[in-house]
Design a protein around this nucleic acid. Structure first.
Lengths: 194, 194
DNA sequence: CCGGTTTGGTCAGCAATATTGACACATTTT
DNA sequence: AAAATGTGTCAATATTGCTGACCAAACCGG
């Protein structure tokens, strides 16, 4: 379980400690309604964000878990099973149930680790890349619409808040992912105006 | 093909800034990496956002579905089963499996609709309100931390993007929820007739 | 080389959340 | 009276997660 016990940071945010001011407009007085809205937004937004990819996956008899594997393997080719487990935050058995079929059906390739030969380095086959890309494109359109409607400043705010919603472990993992940042190089075929 | 491959948006940390926007063109060319980041953020962020409440629920032998029912019933007391189904986007049977125990255990009260006596109007009992509040408080801390770290402008952006990620149906539902305003504020239309 | 640890695979069993389809019942509408 | 609606419930199934146990291969320190 990803923590949940993280206590309030003594380190003040950009706002610092709000003084016991008259107008309770500051963030410490986050009103209840404001936070209930956040709950609603996250519920509806996440649900609809995943809906498009879910539909594609369903056609192939797959689920969201398969997508997550494709996504993170594609994001970090050569990832080991253990690392993937850490990122997904699930057990080996749960992962095995989706990973094994993906390998058998030729979406994911395994290769023996060069440094440590116990490791299975995972990567996407062309078939796997094609599926991952298809799923990605579907979500891209969805996110793109939201980003365009909201504007660049809102996008940056969105990112900051989402990052804040992550626990320390997830933040570390995200950093690792960003550093690895694999396929940023060959995206020529989607640089079109879509 | 032009670009798409480089000019990475300099991995935005908490201090990151929106990519230099010369024209609206750059939102149309939303780069792949930018959108992969969105996928990651949503995955990790949503997971950790729900982790706290999940822990409480697990102690009570409940799951996330129970929380959603408590949340939306609390948000809109007097809601009918059918409306709840529409909001949650699940089937009657799936709802029944969590709703029935919640009623039996005294978290949710049912009352016959005054206009249409077929309807069961749902509301939280004091016990249900207490649990919902406990769950809410846990998430509030979490969201509050993220909001505080991100700052008010970012929060506004977050909301705009999340709203954009919602489909039309969800937007309509959210509007209805906001209009119905929660908890006693403006719920006259549900005069309880026992 | 031995023995302990790490990495990964697999099996058995269980639980939560979702699905579809069918049926029943009370009530409202036509 | 008949049709439609709102709700409850049954049986069967799928997906995704869990725990615990056990095994095999490979690595590492002495």
């Amino acid at each position: 379980m990803p923590e949940g016990s993280e206590s309030k940071p003594a380190a003040p945010g950009p706002e610092g400690r709000p003084p016991p001011a008259p107008a309770g407009r500051n963030l410490l007085f986050l009103r209840e309604e404001e936070l209930r809205l956040a709950q609603d937004l996250l519920f509806f937004g996440y649900r609809d964000f995943t809906a498009g990819a879910d539909a594609i996956l369903a056609e192939l008899g797959m689920g969201r878990a398969h997508h997550r594997v494709l996504h993170f393997v594609g994001r970090r080719p050569g990832i080991t099973v253990g690392e993937l487990l850490g990122i997904l935050g699930i057990t080996k058995q749960s992962l095995g149930r989706v990973l094994t079929p993906l390998v058998e059906q030729g979406y994911v390739a395994q290769s023996t680790g060069r440094a440590d030969r116990r490791q299975r380095l995972l990567s996407l086959t062309p078939k796997g890349e094609a599926l991952e890309r298809r799923l990605f494109e579907r979500q891209r359109e969805w996110v793109m619409r939201a980003y365009r409607e909201a504007g660049p400043a809102a996008v940056e705010g969105f990112r900051r808040v989402m990052r804040g919603l992550m626990g320390p472990e997830a933040r570390a993992q995200l950093e690792r992912l960003e550093r690895a940042s694999p396929r940023g190089a060959d995206t020529t075929h989607l640089a079109r105006t879509g």
